[in-house]
Amino acid sequence: MDSGLQYFLQFGAALVLAPLVPGIINRVKAKFGGRHGKPLLQLYFDLAKLFAKGEVISTTATWIFSAGPVISLTTVVMALALLPLGGVPSPFAFRGDFILCAYLLGMGRFATVLAAMDTGSPFEGMGASREALFGALAEPVLFLCFLSLISTATSMGMKADFSLSMLFNGFALDAWLHGRPELVLLTFVMGILLLVENCRIPVDDPTTHLELTMIHEVMVLDHSGPNLAFILYASAVKLWVFCSLFAGLLVPVLPVWAQTVLTFGVIFAAAVIIGVIESTMARLRMHIVPALIGLSGSVAAFVLILTLVR
């Protein structure tokens, strides 16, 4: 099969399966809590229901409010299109596309935060303020991860054009097996970034009842109908993006079908791990979160220095 076609099949599968990831997390949490819990496909039902509804928009809001979810969904789908999704390089890959990927996610955040500010609600301002800061802090950490991989590749004598499709496509595990054990620490860093960027416990609690303690959920309070569906779907895809970055570090180079299956498996396993973390940990206090990001940043910097020493 032609590799472009293979990629688009995987891309389609990712888009279809993305709402499953929050479903798995919720199931795991329900099992831990001894509850019966929501069905696995709850997000699909929610999306279908929301798509059929109308919208209620605040009288304060302008077009920025309506554009926010659409922009954030677009950017997240674009970011997904730059990733290798299991053995096949993205047809859009080019040198330095990881910069574009990171900034696309930043653009999505920018649009969501502005949409939240557009309602004039103090609660949404609260979430927006936190999201803007944590996003700014997480960005350098993500780049430290990218740089560690690039630095490893450079020191192993690879002169290829560094793109996401090269760095997150079995390269890391390969390098690890060839005497680069420091790269295993990157999975820890990427794990924390996954939690920070997707507003999961211990950074943010998506299911709490108190708006004062939220980040992401409080920003989207005023959205309804198709726009809320876009937001829910975009955050599911964003979760998939980060999970597949995570999987890109752990999955070795295999025949395409095996690598695809393994990648998807790792993504669902990551969902289970997130569920376990969410069930066993409490949310951190807001002013501890920068320390958590700082911790992951220091680990990433440590990895980077180790890769340089060789």
Binding site: A52, E55, V56, I57, S58, T59, T60, V70, S121, P226
Partner: peptide, 20 residues
């Protein structure tokens, strides 16, 4: 996506209300 949203909203439309 914008067009899609518009199409989805054709049936129920947009209502205006105060900020929650």
């Amino acid at each position: 996506f914008t067009v899609l949203r518009r199409l989805l909203l054709l049936r129920q439309g947009i209502r205006r209300g105060p900020t929650w």
